[in-house]
């Protein structure tokens, strides 16, 4: 693609009802790269992603897609340029895999349903890329978590957009399937030049798979840039309130965060972060080599 779609945010203030989540966020998503948004639970990372996908209307500021305010564009036009896989989509019970993936073709179809060759090609290509062809007639209910996530990604791919946003696509998957999904997204980026933006819990996964990181804490952006430049012990302390060592990942040579934890850390620096909730993120992050 010569002219890639661009996505950016300028001065976003985001809120749910009366509760303000973020104020004055500005970011530019690098086209054709993988961007990961990371941070502790409830730091506003999913909220930012939802705003980028025009699922949440900002209270102030604009999300700019190809130079235009995303909320001024018809939602169907946006859907041909930008796809979003939300955190917990629901599949109608009994639906077959192909039928679910085919629903991703919505923005390309007319009012009176027309299933075209282009639809068939896009669905077949999405299923090939996600390795879901052999599941074609299976019911989505009966799939494993990893298979189901591949099917949802296939639906987003069938939408055939340059930009793909994913909200915690690896949550609820075991480690092997998390890596499987991340490898798939990485291939989609490197082989087909799609711009990918994903919210991730695991800082090490983010550092390994993303070209660009956006690190958040309490609704603010603490740092953004390439993982090799910004992931430091100080940043981990800042966004997660957790003492750690950052060492090179022995496989990818990207930064790897090794938590120090309570037993070996004593009261090391914790008093400075009374709001940090160590228990939640330590528990939910399966960190490779964390026990070393």
């Amino acid at each position: 693609m010569t002219d890639r779609r661009t996505l950016a945010a300028e001065g976003l203030t985001l809120a749910y009802d009366q509760r303000e989540v973020s104020r004055d966020l500005s970011i530019a998503i690098p086209p054709g790269r993988v961007t990961a948004i990371v941070g502790a639970n409830a730091c506003g990372k999913s909220t930012l992603l939802r705003a980028l996908a025009r699922l949440l209307k900002p209270r102030a500021g604009t999300v700019v897609l190809d130079g235009e305010d995303i909320n001024d564009l018809p939602t169907k036009v946006v859907a041909t340029r930008l796809g979003i896989l939300p955190q917990a989509p629901s599949a109608p019970s009994g639906i077959a895999v192909t039928d679910l993936i085919a629903r991703g073709r919505y923005p390309h179809q007319r009012l009176v349903r027309q299933w075209t060759d282009a639809d068939e090609v896009a669905v077949a290509a999405a299923m090939t890329a996600t390795d879901t062809l052999e599941l074609a007639t299976r019911q989505v209910d009966t799939l494993s978590g990893g298979q189901r996530q591949r099917v949802w990604i296939a639906m987003a791919l069938a939408q055939d957009t340059d930009i793909l946003l994913l909200d915690e696509p690896t949550t609820f998957l075991d480690l092997a399937h998390q890596i499987d999904v991340l490898d798939l997204l990485s291939e989609l980026n490197s082989d087909h030049g799609r711009t990918i933006v994903l919210v991730l819990h695991d800082l090490n996964h983010a550092a390994r798979y993303a070209h660009h990181l956006i690190a958040m804490r309490e609704g603010r952006i603490c740092a953004q840039g390439p993982p090799g430049e910004i992931v430091t012990e100080a940043l981990v302390e800042e966004i997660l309130g957790m003492a750690s060592r950052v060492v090179p990942d022995p496989v990818s040579n990207t930064p790897m965060v090794v938590p120090i934890g309570r037993t070996s850390a004593n009261a090391n620096g914790r008093a400075a972060h009374p709001t940090a909730r160590e228990d939640t993120h330590v528990r939910t992050r399966p960190t490779p080599g964390g026990a070393a």
Binding site: T98, D99, D117, E120, A125, T128, A136, T137
Partner: peptide, 24 residues
């Protein structure tokens, strides 16, 4: 057949899609 985004779909893949849709 090649989709706009460069993802490829073979004839077999398209046949599987068509067959599973027709089945339902």
């Amino acid at each position: 057949s090649t989709g706009q985004r460069g993802l490829a779909a073979t004839t077999e893949a398209r046949a599987i899609v068509a067959a599973s849709r027709n089945h339902g």
